[in-house]
Nucleic acid binder design. Structure first.
Lengths: 184, 184
DNA sequence: CGAGCCGCTGCAACCGGTTGCATATCGGGG
DNA sequence: CCCCGATATGCAACCGGTTGCAGCGGCTCG
């Protein structure tokens, strides 16, 4: 129920085509709300019908035409109204948690490898976030009102990845107690 | 693709009816993998067809009959095989993150209230987890092999809730800088 | 005595999202 | 020369999950 609003936010920041949005979702907002390009096109269609956005067909030479979507007044109203509605806490879904409960019935070595892989993934993501933070918000205390949201979202990502790593470390300490940190 | 395995784990720990499973999901595993009773019944049907579980109809007096599902050998094989397959990292979905990006287009006061509500929810969940930890794992260093998974999952929950609270606090510090902690 | 909840199972409709495929043009590399 | 990748949009089938509803016996509370 919220992809509409994620797209609305993204378009409110800057008008874009479905293709642009898909790439933007790959790069920034998408870290906190994934969407495939098919889904984006589908939702854009619905949003156009609802009158939240209007397409602006732009001809390009050497490239296919594109439909640049612009947020309408009704779209901005909806966006503001949405921010005023309380959000529902999204249910956590951790396949790793289920796997941990499956320890007595499965392959401990394989699960350990899985935890290591997850730890690496968390570390990569954390590195990416930290780099983004350094690049876009070099002085966090001085962020403008417009930047504040992006900064806070990034902080959330950083905290979450750090926690993910910490959890993996706790798990690995129990599953391979003899290993030192370098081994993990 | 993993509710099957969550149910398999739960049934491997102890055979149960669909109704029992639904309540169990409300209480423990469900904190990390939600499922409604309708979904559970549907999946149990599929699992029975696949031969992973077999129903054992138990007549009860004063209550409707119940179908107690028991994991078959094939079910245990599948469970073990699943633990050996690498897990896919579930995409994060944070409506709050989207809302933070919507700050320039929305109602800051309403968003602030939302963050406060989330903080309370995280605190409640944390309190619940801490209580569970104290009750079921009073001596974490002495957990048995069978208990280890449950303990580690609980640790993950505790870490996640603490992080959620920390994030909310960072956000509130920026949104209501003049407020002290008691006010939040 | 009736209302309403608890235990217990299930169907049907819908809906958001994924997977796979189609199409068209342009430029670059094997 | 042909294939591939980038740009750009979109349909169709499927699938997991939610919402809403239904049935039925027994218990308790007013």
């Amino acid at each position: 129920m919220a992809l509409e609003h994620a797209i609305l936010v993204s378009l409110a920041e800057r008008s874009a085509s479905g293709y642009d949005l898909a790439r933007r979702f790959d790069a920034s907002i998408g870290h906190f709300w994934k969407a495939s390009h098919q889904q984006i096109y589908k939702v854009l269609g619905r949003m156009e019908t609802a009158g939240w956005v209007t397409p602006d067909v732009v001809a390009q030479d050497g490239r296919p035409d594109k439909k640049v979507y612009v947020v309408t007044a009704a779209g901005r109203d909806e966006l503001a109204a949405w921010t005023s509605r309380p959000s529902t806490v999204e249910p956590t879904r951790s396949e790793l948690a289920v796997k941990l409960r499956a320890l007595p019935f499965g392959d401990t070595a394989a699960i350990t490898d899985d935890v290591r892989a997850r730890r690496r993934a968390h570390e990569q993501q954390l590195a990416y976030y930290l780099e983004s933070a350094a690049r876009f918000y070099p002085r966090p205390d001085d962020v403008t009102a417009d930047e504040l949201g992006g900064w806070l979202v990034l902080r959330g990502g950083i905290l979450a990845e750090q926690t993910g790593i910490a959890w993996c470390d706790e798990i690995l300490q129990r599953l391979v107690p003899e290993a030192d940190d370098a081994d993990r």
